[in-house]
């Protein structure tokens, strides 16, 4: 990040081939069209974007295809070794950037990482702090949530066992369907909240409001943490329902 800033602040870079000035994050020289060397840029900067979370994904996709056509290694098959190397590097970076930015969750996690928040590192540091203090670690997610995950998984286990000997208790299956609906709805609600937090972050970023940015970041962390549990619950409930359906099918064939 510091590197990008230095580049942006330093004298306007010039093309290695024709010597014309170009923008810091340009991929190709505007004058001679030659490929420019890779610069240390984050995924947003690569697309010439500010670090805003609300993104026009279809527009980004168009830009991605336009850029990847221009940077494609096939175009540089006859070029110098150096240019071939640059083309490979840039294409691969571009692919990573597109894959990350198009996905709402990956994009949010990436921004938090750029902003110095690594979720896993945070958790590990909290454990180290707890060890040093000889105390239990403060849990990020409320205990109710953990209890809920536990309880549902007990139900799922029961349901899987019941499905195996075809004693498939209809009430249990109905419960699972209700749970699936409930957690899917929670996932959707979380997505709506996520988009609201994106706006909060974008507004704070545009306004240069550091306090509001910090608040938005912390809320995003809390939301992502909660989301990973709900995501697993949805996944587990669906798996259980699938295996029940499969077992029933097999038993029906036998009978």
């Amino acid at each position: 990040m510091a590197m990008t800033q230095t580049l942006a602040q330093s004298a306007t870079p010039v093309c290695w081939s024709c010597g014309s000035a170009h923008e810091a994050h340009a991929q190709l020289c505007g004058s001679c069209g030659k490929l420019l060397p890779p610069v240390d840029a984050d995924y947003f900067a690569l697309f010439g974007l500010p670090r805003r979370l609300t993104l026009d994904v279809p527009a980004l996709e168009k830009q991605f295809y336009r850029l990847s056509r221009r940077l494609h290694p096939d175009l540089y098959a006859q070029a110098s070794e150096q240019e071939r190397q640059w083309s490979l590097e840039k294409s691969s970076l571009l692919n990573d950037a597109w894959r990350t930015l198009r996905d709402p969750i990956a994009r949010t996690e990436y921004l938090l990482e750029l902003e110095g928040i690594a979720l896993e590192e945070q958790s590990r540091n909290a454990t180290d702090a707890a060890r040093a203090a000889g105390t239990a670690k403060q849990q990020i997610v409320p205990p109710d949530m953990l209890e809920e995950v536990f309880e549902l998984n007990m139900q799922l286990e029961e349901a899987r066992m019941a499905a195996q000997d075809d004693s498939g208790d209809p009430e249990l299956v109905a419960n699972l369907h209700a749970a699936e609906k409930n957690y899917s709805a929670q996932m959707e609600a979380l997505h709506t909240q996520l988009e609201q937090l994106w706006s909060a972050w974008d507004t704070a970023l545009t306004a240069g409001d550091a306090t509001a940015q910090e608040e938005a970041k912390q809320s995003l962390v809390a939301l992502l943490n909660r989301r990973s549990y709900i995501r697993n619950l949805v996944r587990d409930v669906r798996q259980a329902l699938d295996s029940i359906a499969v077992n029933r099918g097999e038993n029906a064939d036998k009978g």
């Binding site: 979720l119 990020i140 205990p143 953990l146 209890e147 536990f150 992502l224 990973s228 549990y229 995501r231």
Partner: peptide
């Protein structure tokens, strides 16, 4: 009793 979670992956341990 300790009930803890890893938010990175959604695992829960008791």
């Amino acid at each position: 009793t300790g009930l803890v979670g890893a938010p990175e992956c959604g695992d829960v341990m008791r």
